[in-house]
Write a protein that binds this DNA or RNA. Structure first.
Lengths: 224, 224
DNA sequence: AGATCATCTTGACGCCGTTCACATAGGTGA
DNA sequence: TCACCTATGTGAACGGCGTCAAGATGATCT
């Protein structure tokens, strides 16, 4: 019939094609993945307004109706693109955290990595959050163990937070996310350019902002 | 020809109609305002996906092409709706600030008022920020003296910040905005419901978040 | 009154998301 | 081997969208 869940995983069903062979081995071979990739290419090169289902199908070289055999509708395709983004954001956060000199610095680096990802993939980031806000919840993926969400909690504990104080832990975790999200969406505003340059570049600006805003540098209710 | 700027101000041009007379005095009378109002009604009652130019025209009782005599294109109409939102947000912030017992509390109340407005008008708030992010800058309106932006700066100074430390002032102001924005967009997520209830309602939750996140409760680089 | 000009309508264009009937081709079991 | 089944593709069509050009309408100015 039709794939219902994650489009990136073909399940143990009948192996249909070598996935990345030359030209077009099967009917298409691996349309799901091709469509998601095409969607992301269009998003990056031509912006969100150009991201139509038909354009994605064109980019993948299939008819406008073909995607409907792999995704219920357009928003499900966009969800798959967004999911790829959440996955990469999680990886970026893990990398940032690992690069920190000490547990306390890890929190800061998580924030910087988060904002950095969002600033490097603005259209993708906005798509990710758009999807999340529409359903008024974080994507399931963001809550798995190895996600950004999980890393924040772990980093908080390693920095000395009391994991038994559940309420404060939750508040701090959410606050961190709000914090990073706010900075991520506003750091690109043009009126801040002069200040950015005066501070020696965007990263310094972002660090200043995160520091001012607090949680990444000093989660005081937990650590003070 | 065609109105170029603010659609809400009819300028000193020829008075065309009594503005709010019965039925339809002139060709329409005051289509600009009617269209903005219709747009907002649709946004609130049927959501952003239903907010098409044609639907707005229908709601206002005119043909699909009529709006083009008042707005360059759809996005200019949406900008006008958003501008109304920024105006109201500014007023809400002013009210919150005025209700505070002391200068320090004023900062907190500004944050609470901001988030409260966003939570009460989620679709409008998202439209407002969407427009801002698209052009990568705050709307001009948000930067005028009596806007939310201005109130934050004033409140910071009244709370004891040093207005001559320009860089820190700017950083704090931006941080406050990031802060409020992040909380505003995430406070509605469903996975936080249990915590919200445990804390005695959404306002307490928001205050906790703003407090954790820092700037509204303790802009330390400036005040400590 | 006649000219003028902003305003509104009609009709059209191309693009969109989506659906449906049909075509095609790999895999399966007789 | 071959008929069948199912997954996957195409083509044509629908209504809705944003937008524009040409024409109708009616208030205002001289």
């Amino acid at each position: 019939m039709r794939e219902t869940g994650n489009a990136a995983i073909q399940a143990p069903a009948a192996k249909v094609a070598p996935a990345t062979a030359g030209a077009r081995p099967y009917h298409h071979g691996d349309l799901s993945r091709a469509l998601v990739a095409a969607g992301r290419r269009i998003l990056e090169s031509e912006g969100p307004s150009a991201l139509s289902l038909r354009a994605v199908a064109r980019e993948a070289g299939v008819s406008p109706a073909a995607p409907y055999h792999h995704f219920k509708d357009k928003s499900e395709l966009l969800d798959a693109v967004a999911e790829e983004g959440w996955h990469e954001l999680g990886a970026a956060i893990a990398t940032g955290r690992a690069a920190a000199a000490n547990p306390r610095a890890a929190l800061t680096e998580i924030g910087v990595a988060y904002v950095s990802f969002a600033r490097k993939n603005p259209a993708l980031y906005r798509l990710m959050y758009h999807a999340a806000c529409d359903r008024e919840m974080m994507p399931d993926h963001a809550k798995t163990q190895d996600s950004g969400w999980g890393h924040v909690a772990e980093a908080l504990v390693e920095a000395g937070a009391d994991p038994t104080n559940e309420r404060e832990m939750q508040l701090a975790q959410i606050a961190a996310w709000c914090n990073a999200h706010g900075v991520a969406e506003m750091a690109g505003f043009k009126e801040f350019e002069p200040l950015k340059e005066a501070m020696g570049g965007e990263e310094a600006f972002v660090r200043g902002l995160l520091n001012h805003v607090g949680i990444f540098a000093r989660p005081r209710a937990l650590l003070d």
